[in-house]
């Protein structure tokens, strides 16, 4: 098995307040018990990586696999998602992040983030969004065709926008708009015991932008934060970010889930920031970076829920 990299060992600083277990020997070492958990990134065939960690009664597990193959795609198309006219080009259907709390021997609570459940919440009616050249394109067809212009055969939200905030097994979270994420606690440089970052699905929108649902999680000794982000860019048309943040305080068995929707017209954002970008930065490149975009879009909707297990 892999040697424990000395660099990681050198970062051993803090002691752990709660017992934890690291269990994937393929991954680099944990600063505390010597066997963490930064999943191997190589996406070569055959790819599978399922690291996990337990802290107290909480277990965090993730899995990464390649995109779905054709038989699986047809099955999803016909059985699971019949309303979607076409599935995203890249579906990492075997990927997931799962956060589980074992309350006692027979009772547990968990929340999972996976592509299938995310796609189940994509609307199966027309979103009304069109690519930038759509009106020119259609006008030219009207001019050219004697008969009726071509019609859209299957209506669905081709931007794959989903309001998915994770799949909960057990008691549902309860709306609590006054609740906040404890940003001060999260800003502390606690050691990260487990980190993973993955894409659940992605589509290039026929080279008219990008639509991507991704998920990352960091587990510290006393808490964890998960960020599930849907990012949509329709070039010259629309920018949209929908962030789900899930916060768990291990010792209190308390969960906070915040969902925020940010949205703006692409060209308005472009115009507003055209002058303010340093000369060596390309604004169009920044508009492809969800981290930059989310800081420059207005929030249009927010929900917050909590649960005390």
């Amino acid at each position: 098995m892999d040697q424990v990299p000395p660099v990681t060992r050198g970062r051993q600083v803090r002691s752990l307040p709660l017992p934890h277990r690291c269990n994937n020997p393929r991954n680099p070492a944990c600063a505390h018990c010597g066997t963490v958990i930064i999943p191997s990134p190589a996406a070569i065939m055959p790819l599978e990586d399922t690291p996990s960690i337990s802290v107290g009664s909480w277990t965090i597990e993730s899995r990464k696999r390649p995109i779905l193959d054709t038989p699986a795609l047809s099955q999803w198309e016909s059985e699971h998602l019949p309303g979607l006219g076409a599935l995203p080009e890249m579906i990492f259907g075997g990927n997931y992040v799962r956060i589980r709390c074992d309350l006692d021997e027979s009772k547990h609570w968990d929340i999972e983030f996976n592509a299938l459940d995310a796609l189940r919440e994509v609307p199966t009616e027309d979103s009304g969004v069109r690519v930038s050249c759509a009106s020119d394109w259609l006008r030219s067809k009207h001019r050219r065709c004697d008969g009726a212009p071509p019609q859209i055969a299957k209506q669905y939200d081709w931007t794959y926008t989903t309001r998915y905030r994770g799949t909960v097994t057990g008691c549902p979270l309860v709306a609590d708009t006054t609740a906040e994420l404890p940003l001060a606690m999260l800003a502390k440089p606690d050691p990260i015991l487990f980190f993973d970052d993955m894409v659940l699905y992605e589509d290039e929108l026929g080279d008219n932008g990008a639509s991507m649902y991704s998920c990352k999680v960091r587990v510290m000794p006393e808490r964890l934060l998960l960020l599930a982000r849907f990012f949509l860019r329709v070039d010259d048309v629309l920018l949209r970010v929908q962030d789900t943040r899930l916060y768990v305080e291990f010792a209190q068995n308390r969960v906070v889930r915040e969902w925020k929707r940010y949205e703006a017209d692409y060209n308005e954002v472009f115009k507003r920031h055209r002058g303010g970008v340093p000369p060596h930065r390309d604004l169009r490149a920044l508009l492809r970076d969800s981290n930059w975009v989310v800081d420059h879009l207005p929030i249009v909707e927010r929900t917050c829920e909590t649960i005390q297990l």
Binding site: A153, Y156, L205, G206
Partner: peptide, 14 residues
């Protein structure tokens, strides 16, 4: 695609 005749992409072009 699995369509009967020339169809417009739901994206509005193509």
């Amino acid at each position: 695609d699995d369509v009967e005749t020339w169809s417009l992409s739901p994206r509005g072009a193509g």
